[in-house]
Nucleic acid binder design. Structure first.
Lengths: 138, 138
DNA sequence: GTAACTGCAAAATATTTGCATCCTT
DNA sequence: AAGGATGCAAATATTTTGCAGTTAC
């Protein structure tokens, strides 16, 4: 089981209330979170600025990764063990449900290779699929 | 050759200075534009609000499509002929160059199929590849 | 002439920065 | 004790909304 304190220590980050709370929220959430989601769902009230800085720190340390969106937000989701700072292994597909609006990391589904035109050198790739998730299908 | 007036008429939108200018900018740009890019590069000065509303209108009419990003912006790019309002055929790969920072529509590269876990129903998909573009490669 | 588009003003929202204080190690 | 993290205040930036005047058809 994932433990927020473990994760922080493993990344040599000091263990503070806000970091624990935000990390716990990620652990408890089966999906991605935007800044606004965190503000809305966090138990204790932390300063908005703290949330920004915490997300930034987590991202820089490879604890969370970003998911591209088309709505002026950035979504973040927990990285799996293989992620490291600066070298994310988050090339899995992300699924956004049109009904429940959740964004789910399909960790087991890797982004397929794609043949690019001559001269293009791919370094990272991201894939986002929208549709109906397994929960809402029922 | 693409003509802004044609495009507007084809979509039964009235032909105004701002719409022509913004559309011309898209036509002249080999790549995607964010709201900020438009404000920066447009010749005449249009109100910021007009740019927002124009992008919205173009998007709703299927003239431009959105490209997901991880930086609190939305990128827009011209749709090819096959795009129609409400039913975009923009499932091509987008390439973001780490050097020149341009976002390029690889119209000829379609987003590959991907096998999702049981129960997930895909409706749309997007793929963004980062790396070095053919221009910067040299 | 009429409907639609634009610009302006202003409100609402989101993000960043500096600094003093507090907390973790 | 020292460095780093937080909260507050404030500056900056972004997006939305309402309304009056203007323009396209």
């Amino acid at each position: 089981m994932l433990d927020s304190i473990d994760i922080l220590k493993r990344n040599t980050l000091s263990v503070t209330e806000s970091r624990k709370a935000i990390l716990d929220l990620f652990i408890d959430t089966d999906g991605a979170l935007a800044h606004a989601d965190i503000e809305k769902n966090i138990s204790n009230d932390f300063d908005r600025v703290t949330v920004y800085r915490t997300l930034q720190t987590f991202f820089e340390n490879g604890i969370i990764h970003q998911i591209p969106t088309t709505d002026n937000t950035v979504l973040y989701a927990l990285c799996k063990d293989k992620c490291e700072a600066g070298h994310h292994h988050d090339e899995h597909v992300h699924f956004i449900c049109n009904l429940c609006d959740k964004t789910i990391c399909l960790d087991e589904v890797t982004v397929p290779q794609v043949k690019l035109p001559k001269g293009f050198k791919p370094l990272q790739k991201a894939m986002v699929v929208k549709g109906i998730c397994a929960e809402c299908k029922n």
